[in-house]
């Protein structure tokens, strides 16, 4: 069973989460539901620091044994920091998707874009629809 989706996050329809750090930056990752669908993550390709990313466009790659999946940027901005530990221990995403498995910190170009994301309860509804 998936872990509950924290209320202090926003969610994309592509199963990324975003935490507004309140200083013009946001931390992003993939949701617990996403890691559960992917199962055993064995490789993460992180974006370069300074890279400009666009909302809805690929910003990173996660690979399970069987599949290759893009991680889409939930908001536009510049990559400030990436979670380098994932290069050695990609399974952290499986173990703690909302915590130690974070992927990158983004400096937002347009904070208004966050309005297009889902809150936890609407994201929960989306997951239930997908499961059915």
């Amino acid at each position: 069973m998936s872990k509950p989706n924290p209320a202090n996050r926003l969610y994309s329809k592509d199963h990324e989460w975003l935490k507004d750090n309140g200083d013009g930056t946001a931390t992003v990752g993939i949701t617990d539901y996403a890691q559960e669908m992917l199962t055993d993550i064995v490789f993460v390709e992180l974006p370069d620091i300074g890279k400009k990313v666009t909302q809805g466009e690929p910003m990173a790659v996660v690979e399970s044994v069987k599949s290759v999946s893009d991680v889409y940027a939930p908001v536009s901005g510049e990559i400030m920091e990436t979670n380098k530990i994932l290069e050695e221990t990609p399974e952290l995403i499986n173990q703690d998707a909302f915590g130690e498995g974070w992927i990158a910190k983004i400096r937002l170009t347009d904070p208004q874009e966050m309005k297009s994301l889902l809150d936890a309860s609407n994201y929960e509804k989306l997951i239930q629809e997908e499961k059915n």
Partner: peptide, 11 residues
């Protein structure tokens, strides 16, 4: 069936 739990464990 591609996997029951996950590929690494089954492997």
């Amino acid at each position: 069936p591609v996997q029951y739990t996950n590929v690494i464990d089954e492997h």
